[in-house]
Amino acid sequence: MNHQPRKRFGQNFLRDGTVVRQIVLGIAPRPDDHLVEIGPGQGVLTEALLPLCGKLEAIEIDRDLAASLERKFSGDTKLRLHRADALKFQFCALSAGEKLRVVGNLPYNISTPLLFHLFAQAGCIADMHFMLQKEVVDRLCAAPGDKSYGRLGVMAQYYCRADSLFEVPPESFYPQPQVMSAVVRLIPHEAKPVDVGPELLGHVVAAAFSQRRKTLRNALKHLFDDGEIQSLGIDPQARAETLGLEAYARLARAFQEKQDNAIN
């Protein structure tokens, strides 16, 4: 497939057969699986997955690539191609009662907003396997106190269990990215690990990490005073990266209670 990679779509095509086989082993597709591939590109992973699954939906924004994929897989009835922007795509519309398994070599320039778009639809997703910039995978899998721990890590823990599977060097792609990559497995929780809504939690977490080098006293001063933070068993002198998901859930619930009391 002769295609000039387009920077605006963040295209770095996987060309290492060994890595493709590692990804397929990690996914371990079954004959009755309903797979969804984001950004199939030149179809390298698509070709490896098709014989092993029940059906595969592929979402490709590049019209030229979509046309090439249609020609390449024209005889395979398992594949349905969607010419669409994954950031706007309604994944749950593909589910007919069964859980989807989502895979892909995600464009690094949109990986974080795309992950949040998928988290919001996690109810119809069994698992996700993505190639991402290693730095993003580190952030997804980080624990409190880790240097990579931040807003993405907290919110990922709220929605999923995250496991880094293996790293992938730049030479596995064309063109070569300037960074290391890694493959991550994300398994949505059957039930959320904390009792708080995602918008409320996200608001408090974003506020805490908006001034990462500052203490919670300063980062959250527009939401809480010192006494309110201390009453939740949290040190106002602590920094955002030291708090776990459960502590952020306590803050979020307390903020909701403050809002409710102010209205009443």
Results as ranks from 00 to 15, higher is better:
Glu228Ser: 08
Ser210Val: 06
Gln230Glu: 15
Ala162His: 05
Gly104His: 01
His189Asp: 05
Gly10Met: 03
Ser181Cys: 09
Lys221Glu: 11
Asn264Phe: 11
Leu251Ser: 01
Tyr159Met: 10
Arg30Gln: 15
His222Lys: 13
Ser231Cys: 01
Asp163Asn: 11
Gln256Tyr: 13
Phe255Leu: 06
Gly233Met: 02
Phe130Trp: 02
Val184Phe: 08
Leu25Ala: 14
Val20Tyr: 10
Ala206Lys: 15
Gly233Val: 05
Ser68Phe: 15
Arg253Ser: 12
Pro198His: 04
Ala143Phe: 10
Asn12Glu: 06
Gln237Ala: 15
Val168Cys: 10
Ala182Phe: 06
Asn2Leu: 13
Phe209Ala: 04
Gln121Ile: 11
Gln11His: 12
Gln259Trp: 03
Glu57Ala: 15
Pro175Phe: 00
Gly150Ala: 11
Ala67His: 06
Leu118Arg: 10
Arg71Gly: 09
Asp85Lys: 08
Leu79Asp: 05
Cys141Glu: 08
Arg6Ser: 04
Asn261His: 13
Pro40Trp: 02
Tyr174Lys: 11
Gly123Val: 02
Asn261Gly: 10
Gln22Trp: 08
Val168Phe: 08
Leu56Tyr: 00
Asn12Trp: 11
Gln259Pro: 00
Gln256Phe: 14
Asp127Cys: 14
Asn218Glu: 07
Val194Lys: 00
Leu94His: 05
Gly104Gln: 01
Cys160Met: 00
Leu201Trp: 05
Glu167Tyr: 13
Pro29Phe: 07
Ala86Cys: 05
Arg80Phe: 12
Met155Cys: 09
Ile263Pro: 00
Glu60Ala: 05
Lys221Met: 09
Asn12Ser: 11
Asp32Thr: 13
